[in-house]
Computed example of a mutant assay.
Amino acid sequence: MSRSFTAVVGPAARRGLARLMPVAQLLRAGGARVRVEYTTGVAQAREVARRSAAAGDVVLASGGDGTLRCLGAALAGTGGVLGIVPAGRGNDLARQLGLPDRAEDVAELLLHGAPRRIDVVDTGAETVLGSVYAGVDAAANERANRARWTPSGLVYPLAGARALAGWRPARYEIAVDGGEPVALTAYTVVVANSGYYGGGLHVAPGARVDDGLLDVIVLGCASKLLFPLVLREMRSGAHVRRPEVTVLRGASVTLSADRPVPAYADGDPLSVLGSLSLQVRAGALSVLAAQ
């Protein structure tokens, strides 16, 4: 039996549509029915996604990590299935899931791939698929989101360098699985379901999207002159061997800071950090991805 798909397209969809259309043509050529629903905001997009999944369609997300979070949050816990056409600047969850890039390979996976259950992160106010991060990387993300004319390959490196120049470490308290809080002075804390963020940085190389756990990466105090090397090591995940980096792991994490610092989730603003409580929802979302 052929699959049916509903592609949910938001108002800022130029890049996503350009990637979606050739995939949609290949899906139709393969016998699938494909509808495209245009929406005007997050609330409508999530309602369309839930309604389409309830009717038996695979919900197609064509975009980056923010788009996947928007639609994945709507489907988590419902039994609906999310299909992904990677079309963002970072595509970090797609990278973690090992999704293909060529339209032909994406269509083949969507037509014939088996659903895979992955974890999500409950922040209380939002459902996150990839990671939550509070500190200099969130400040860098703010800058990256404002960038309009910077080549895509340079957006995150330039934003990171500019954010770092004026940043001072904060004092964080981190409690894992209800244990005693650990106090650490750090540039940033990343609570990761997926191992990648920032357009390909392997910030949490031990993270798995289906292990029921969160990996907490704390980048502690170090000379700012060391950061270019640390960033280079993040491409492979080698930075976690540094003494300045602390790695924790658990199913729930409570995080607070001694001053307001920005907190982001999957490329979008989450809050100004006072305190956050994060909890894994194991296997809450079904996606079409390699097993």
Rank of each mutant, 00 (worst) to 15 (best):
G41L: 11
A289F: 01
N145A: 11
A263Y: 08
G80T: 00
S236V: 07
P11K: 04
T123C: 14
V136Q: 01
G16I: 00
D105K: 14
A18N: 14
R148Q: 08
A163P: 03
L225T: 13
A107F: 05
P11C: 04
A61M: 03
M234T: 15
V203E: 03
R242N: 12
A134L: 08
G63K: 00
V48N: 00
G179N: 06
A238Y: 01
G113D: 04
V42Y: 00
A161M: 11
G41D: 12
A222E: 15
V272R: 14
L111Q: 11
A257R: 06
A284M: 12
A103F: 04
D210M: 10
R102A: 15
T150R: 07
A159P: 03
S152M: 11
Y156K: 02
G90L: 03
Y264D: 07
G77A: 12
L111W: 01
G212C: 13
D92E: 02
G166T: 15
A32P: 02
E233I: 04
R89E: 13
G124R: 12
V23S: 01
L71P: 03
L278V: 04
S52L: 01
A183H: 09
S256C: 13
T246A: 10
P269S: 09
V247R: 12
A73E: 08
E37Q: 09
S152G: 06
Y197N: 12
D215N: 09
A289C: 05
